[in-house]
Design a protein around this nucleic acid. Structure first.
Length: 598
DNA sequence: GCACGTGGCACC
DNA sequence: AAACGGTGCCACGTGC
């Protein structure tokens, strides 16, 4: 057995590295003595737990002052010991433990169902305490950031720096390092041994700081339950139509080359270089009025599109678009698929400042073009299944109606009246402008933004928003209440007991945070209720106000109807309706079938 | 050579 | 009176 020593904020930590099977007896004793709560972590060959060549290299367990490192890659007895410890512990804590559960399941055969119900995650706890990123004035949510904020800045810097340092020493990139580093490398073992100790200590610091209101509302277990559900959705993955994706990649690549060639004829080698494009435009006598925040000429789609007859402007727009669509939505999926042609999204169940979920990695589902179905066509329901989408109608405005109890809004939603038209009529503007005013209110926007967006005068924008306030008095009262609360305490609370920090110099954003976060919690609740009813194996993705499913073809209508009824909820008398749309095999077919009906 | 900030753009 | 909220990814270009 090897021993390493480290000190975190003047508290010594002993790191024990198991080297032989005989060393395990001491490890068993350690686990038995500390089974009531154990920190844990894994080191792996990479982040792609779905790949065939993915391996877990180390599994680490720790308390506040002691940790054990098992090099499971070297001996199956070590793997067995790690699996035993995870089963034997009464409670576990990890930072972003979802990843470690995927890793242990994929590489060591331990089902995440065996670990998730007794797990605490310091990332979730940290979010309940303060959801803000570092640059927003918060603690951040990454382990190094939280270590620096709550425990010890020196440790944070050393732990963060060590991965880069090892990579430099081995002369490989950081990503390669995780595979390449030797399992006896002391710097690596020290880094690995610290992580479960940090998770353990962070847990002790964070738990008492979770706001009492959040705790009373049951948010801690609620968020952990949700994280487990989204982990199961990640595990299932989404079946990729590889042939279709490859066709699109080829078509977009050829389109991109064509437009790039035209741009090159006009002196632009890199269409994505705004500097090059700006220079070429100026040489062509085109004035660039806008400036970016660093004072450079602003070359964006709006400028380029305003010269529809200029061949360079058109070539730049089209070449950029083809390139971006090819890499982001098709190559990303194709290159990250598993051996069964499934792609696994990375779902951060509680991520944004408002706790909105984010989806990153191979399936950037939250940004798929809404205007056309051709990206969604690459995702298929399972063999024998069809794609179903169930989305909430007008979610954010209904949430606003519910919590403001504004009589005009309540009345409009109850009787199916057109809310955008009501706003428009009150202000004497077209419906489109009324709709913009409605949404801008949810976003916290003012007259300048409305004027710009709607292309109307500042005067008219002011009058429109004034008419909005006259019409929906309740909205103003809710906004005032939240703004006052934010200015007084720096926080607002949602109905689910979540505490959201609001910058005092931007107190107007309190209403938006409230609506956005409340809406997110409605979708989160739906996932939890659907899970109870056994629907999770059918869920493919959550996208803000929409859930995508794969249902057996012959029962799709019935199951979709059941799921929609589970999703629907009435809040303070306002129904948030959920409407199923049934497609054919591909996700994209849903939109096509809906279009063909009209 | 890699990390990081910036600008642009896809979405709710 | 005025205030546009929340994301992630890609390419480029710079700085270490």
């Amino acid at each position: 057995m090897k021993r390493l020593s480290y000190t975190i904020r003047s508290t010594p930590v002993q790191i024990n590295i198991v080297e032989t099977v005989d060393d395990l007896s001491r490890f068993y004793l350690f686990v038995r003595d500390n089974r009531q709560l154990l920190g844990w972590d894994t080191e792996t060959t990479g982040l792609d737990w779905w790949s065939d060549d993915f391996r877990v290299r180390l599994v680490q367990f720790g308390t506040a002052d002691e940790s054990w490192v098992l090099p499971v890659e070297l001996d199956s007895h070590f793997t067995d010991a790690a699996v035993w410890a995870l089963g034997f512990a009464s409670q576990l804590v990890a930072h972003n433990g979802t990843f470690d559960m995927h890793a242990m399941e994929a590489a060591c055969g331990l089902p995440m169902e065996a670990v998730a119900p007794k797990s605490l995650d310091t990332k979730l706890l940290a979010h309940l305490v303060d959801p803000r990123a570092l640059k927003e004035g918060g603690s951040g949510l990454r382990l190094e950031e939280l270590t620096a904020y709550y425990l010890c800045t020196r440790t944070a810097a050393e732990v963060k720096g060590s991965a880069s340092q090892i990579a430099r020493r081995l002369k490989v990139s950081r990503a390669e390092m995780w595979k390449a580093v030797d399992l006896t490398d002391d710097e690596y073992l020290l880094y690995a041994g610290c992580d479960p100790v940090l998770a353990y200590r962070l847990c002790a610091r964070l738990l008492p700081q979770v706001p009492p209101r959040s705790r009373r509302a049951g948010l801690i277990s609620w968020e952990h339950r949700l994280a487990h559900i989204t982990a199961k959705i990640e595990r299932t993955g989404y079946l990729l139509d590889v042939d279709y994706a490859l066709e699109q990649i080829a078509a977009l690549a050829s389109e991109q080359r064509g437009w790039q060639a035209i741009a090159a004829e006009h002196g632009v080698e890199n269409v994505a270089s705004t500097r090059q494009v700006a220079q070429a435009l100026i040489e062509r006598g085109i004035k660039i009025p806008g400036r970016t925040k660093t004072g450079l000429p602003k070359v964006d789609d709006a400028l380029l599109a305003s010269y529809p007859d200029d061949p360079l402007c058109q070539a730049v727009i089209r070449a950029k678009r083809a390139g971006k669509w090819r890499t982001t939505w098709f190559e990303n999926a194709v290159l990250n698929r598993d051996s069964n042609d499934r792609v696994h999204a990375s779902i951060n169940s509680c991520q944004a400042r408002t706790a909105r979920m984010t989806i990153t990695g191979a399936v950037a589902a939250q940004t798929f073009p809404a205007s056309s179905s051709f990206v969604r066509h690459e995702f298929l329901a399972d063999e024998g299944d069809v794609s179903v989408s169930i989305d909430y109608g007008n979610m954010e405005l209904r949430v606003l109606a519910a919590y403001s109890q504004d009589p005009v809004m309540l009345d409009a939603f109850r009787d199916g009246k057109d809310l955008h038209q009501i706003t428009a009529d009150a202000a004497g503007v077209p419906r489109k402008v009324g709709k913009m005013a409605n949404f801008l209110t949810v976003f916290g926007g003012g007259p300048k933004a409305l004027a710009q967006q709607a292309g109307i005068s500042l005067e008219l924008a002011r009058a429109t928003l004034a008419a909005f306030n006259e019409t929906y008095r309740g909205v103003g009262r809710l906004a005032d209440r939240l703004t006052r609360e934010a200015k007084r305490s720096g926080y607002i609370y949602t109905a689910t007991g979540r505490r959201l920090p609001v910058d005092k110099h931007r107190a107007y954003s309190a209403l938006n945070y409230f609506i956005q976060s409340s809406s997110r919690d409605i979708t989160a609740r739906a996932l939890i209720e659907l899970d109870k009813a056994g629907f999770t194996p059918h869920v493919r993705l959550p996208i803000h106000d929409e859930l995508v499913f794969s249902f057996p073809r012959e029962r799709a209508g019935e199951l979709a109807e059941q799921a929609a009824r589970i999703m629907e909820i009435t809040i303070r008398g306002v129904l948030i309706p959920a409407e199923p749309e049934i497609g054919d095999r591909s996700w994209g077919s849903i939109l096509d079938l809906a279009d063909s009906k009209h």
